[in-house]
Amino acid sequence: MTGIAAGLSALTGCRGELAIVDPAGPAARSISLLWWGMVIWFGLVLLAVTLLWIYSVHVRPRSGRAVTEPAVIARGAPRWIVGGGVLLPLITVTILLLLGLPAGHRMAAPAPDALVIEVTGHQWWWEIRYPDGEVITANHLVMPAGEPVILRLTSADVIHSFWVPRLAGKMDMIPGHTNRLRLEADQPGLYRGQCSEFCGAQHARMLLTVEALPEPEFSRWLSRRQQFLPPSPASKTLAQFSTHCGDCHRVSGLTRGLSGGPDLTDIGARPTLGAGTLTMSEPGALLRWLQEHRRLKPDNRMVAPPLPAAELSDIAAWLEQLVP
């Protein structure tokens, strides 16, 4: 019931974490305005044309006003056809192009001073790299609020698509290509994104969280993150982690993670696990992920670490502390 109630309020309130009609950035706002303009105009057109059909088929024949003189028809019919079939669409689309294309232009305008963040799509997680090369994270994008950032998007495997609906339109992430997306949040806050190009088994569970911080805070976050040295766990735990996890998962200063799994350096600070499969705020979420990830996100690329519960628990406890 709470689901239905929440849904109803979202419906009537036009709100939602992923709602295009609930914009929180200039690009999304521009598009939302275009949407409302179009739906109102086209709604009127649909209504008018439907009423014409109903009138012609049901009302007019009974009113006895049937016209049969060829001369009258020869004058009137072209007016219908040219007016409704040529002029109406032509004028509508010209106006749409005149309004819409420059809006699109503005959304993609260059921003030479903007921060550039590289995002790479993987099956089924997001790799995020900041300009210095040292700050690498996954599934959680932190950006400054109130100014544009430029994302450079590509993919390590199949085609994905980067989309944070409340902020901007989407851009595909294609292997071998680097695409560019301009992203800006009006206000600080938490936003959500979702992969929107079908990328295989767990395309449905490839969520992204975006955190916009006001500028001085963002710079502080970035420098804290750059200087962060993850604490080392007990040597036994570290050995097990390196053996079973370290090939894929980089933890800055401790493991290299060259086989290309998500970087775990700041995993304790991320809102979700498994790209939105579990929320970190759930107690024991990390341990649950380690134990049940194959059931929670079937066919995901992570190998199940063959460790008993106690040792998994140690690893999980250590990972939870990785908060810059």
Binding site: I31, L34, W35, M38, G100, G104, P165, A168, K170
Partner: peptide
């Protein structure tokens, strides 16, 4: 309309 499609595609 391209910008709109960028959202709803």
């Amino acid at each position: 309309l391209v910008p709109f499609d960028w959202q709803v595609h």
